[in-house]
Nucleic acid binder design. Sequence first.
DNA 1: CTAATTTCGTGCATTTTATCTCGAATGACG
DNA 2: CGTCATTCGAGATAAAATGCACGAAATTAG
Lengths: 221, 221
Amino acid sequence: MTPTSNNGKTGISIPAATMERLPRYLMQLFRLRRKNCDSVNSQSLGEALGLKDTQIRKDLSYFGVFGKARYGYNVEYLIKAIESILGLTSEYNLAIIGVGNLGKALANYAVQVNSNFVLKLLVDTNPEIIGTTVADLPVRSMDDLPQLLSTQEIHIGIIAVPEKAAVDVANILVEGGVRALYNFSQAELHHIEGVFIENASISYGVYKLAHHLSGSWPRKK
Amino acid sequence: MTPTSNNGKTGISIPAATMERLPRYLMQLFRLRRKNCDSVNSQSLGEALGLKDTQIRKDLSYFGVFGKARYGYNVEYLIKAIESILGLTSEYNLAIIGVGNLGKALANYAVQVNSNFVLKLLVDTNPEIIGTTVADLPVRSMDDLPQLLSTQEIHIGIIAVPEKAAVDVANILVEGGVRALYNFSQAELHHIEGVFIENASISYGVYKLAHHLSGSWPRKK
DNA sequence: CTAATTTCGTGCATTTTATCTCGAATGACG
DNA sequence: CGTCATTCGAGATAAAATGCACGAAATTAG
Ligand SMILES: NC(=O)c1ccc[n+]([C@@H]2O[C@H](COP(=O)([O-])OP(=O)(O)OC[C@H]3O[C@@H](n4cnc5c(N)ncnc54)[C@H](O)[C@@H]3O)[C@@H](O)[C@H]2O)c1
Ligand SMILES: NC(=O)c1ccc[n+]([C@@H]2O[C@H](COP(=O)([O-])OP(=O)(O)OC[C@H]3O[C@@H](n4cnc5c(N)ncnc54)[C@H](O)[C@@H]3O)[C@@H](O)[C@H]2O)c1
């Protein structure tokens, strides 16, 4: 059976909460692979992620049988399976708009995360930044962006510009055919038909920590 | 009644999901304040955040009565109320360890987010970075960190160093009395008794977008 | 003043999610 | 080769979260 098959469970809708957890499983599996672990059981995987073992088994069971009794899950196989479920079978081309501090950090980070994400384009307006090389890519001018988008397909546009420029940048990307935006600016990007927008929110974590320090944040088991 | 009071609902435990949403409400309220909106109703707040209006009313009702019929919620008052619930009444001192690209971005960002977070300390090991000024603060040497932590109280330690240095940095911070860590490195920080650890996860968002592009991510209504 | 209308707050039904439980499969070991 | 311990898979059950529906409060209009 291929990792993608659903083990005959057609029609069953996967809980959204399960889908949200899959990337976390994947990251932990990558860590295990780096440590040369061949297999992992639901209990230790759960401990690493702060989840109950039954939670993990149930999540994975929605997609078919991946584990073996008395052994657990094969790390490599499970990585392939989850990548397949998440649609990481094909490559995704990334463009980062705004190569300031955050843009640079993201550019360097993007190449590490997963080989399915390929950084293709870095764009800025600042003449001092245009032409420099970041993460082995030249920074291009914002003026050329529409033309660049017509030449190569960009799947995900990462917006790392100041708040007031974000909406304009988003529009240019969408006009150029980009269907998924990852917005790091504080701007509020309104919903655009047919475009998936994900907002990064580094501040939420700080709020959580503050609340923890101030009293008792309700613990998730 | 003060915004902190619980309207007589003592003993009722607040759903974890509600607590997770409060920071999002707060961010949206900040946006509205910047646009000089005085009031907002549950419906428009819900639309902006992709939530049902009833969800928002229910969440807020756990903490008491904040709204008025036919008017909605006073933005300023609701900000104060949520800040109070989240423990943002006192100030929190931040230290950023690792002033590379990400550290710099976070330093500049931290000062914008909320005046309750005060960036106090920037630390690095690189001699070329030590002594430079970022976000109006001098970058100090990592060697001095233990001493610096004994001089001033740091509430939240933000870790923006390479993966292999992260565990050491975490230990030094904890030994220096820091009780909350915000980890941006890919390292897995094991649970430390009495310390709250929050892991940033920029990659999850990209996985989500990839899955969306590859098929149909289960929509949250 | 009264009626119409908006929008809140909340009890309760529904839906979704997490956890418990246990049979079955697997491999270790004598 | 049979027994035993372990770990999975998944149905049943419990818990949590969501969303509906309606009464109450507040504002506007006539
Ligand atoms: N979401 C988060 O958690 C988080 C964290 C840090 C920073 N940020 C945000 O990310 C953004 C960037 O932060 P930064 O620290 O890198 O700022 P920065 O000023 O260092 O970088 C912004 C870059 O965008 C470029 N730029 C400006 N207008 C542009 C345009 N119209 N098109 C293309 N490029 C343009 C600038 O030349 C600059 O290089 C800010 O909005 C900041 O608030 C968000
Ligand atoms: N979580 C995310 O989404 C995300 C995004 C981008 C980067 N990152 C991670 O953040 C980290 C930093 O990224 P970056 O792009 O800023 O890298 P960078 O190399 O530009 O910066 C790292 C800085 O840490 C300093 N440093 C190294 N060892 C140190 C130590 N022991 N004590 C103090 N400082 C030390 C270095 O001198 C350097 O200035 C990396 O681990 C990267 O993977 C995470």
